[in-house]
Amino acid sequence: MIDDSRPIFLQIAEEIENEIVEGTLAEEAQVPSTNEFAAFHRINPATAAKGVNRLVDEGILYKQRGIGMFVATGARAALLQRRRDRFFDQYVRPLAVEARKLGISPHELAEMVRSSESVTGGTP
């Protein structure tokens, strides 16, 4: 849901990215219109359009005049690559900081990550 921490257009763009990464929005599937996004999230339509257009500029979505917006082929792979690039800063670093604060050694931390595999269903 929309929060106050960042511009809304970024949050809209991320929501669409998430759906593509998770496969809810398949490649070549039609994306809801900006007005549908605006009505659903109760946000300004111009803001919703800005979020969608950001993904168009990045080649994740493409527009077909008069029909609507679609997920580009290859969008999922591109998004996955981008997220992998950010994974260390976004997840690993804060994890290590918190672990150090709690006195969890790197070895214990690695062990925890390994054991979490069984909780979250193992390798995909």
């Binding site: 900006t34 007005n35 605006a38 009505a39 109760r42 946000i43 300004n44 339509p45």
Partner: peptide, 10 residues
């Protein structure tokens, strides 16, 4: 608010 956003969009 909902009607405002919907109608403004159109």
């Amino acid at each position: 608010y909902d009607r405002l956003v919907e109608d403004y969009a159109l």
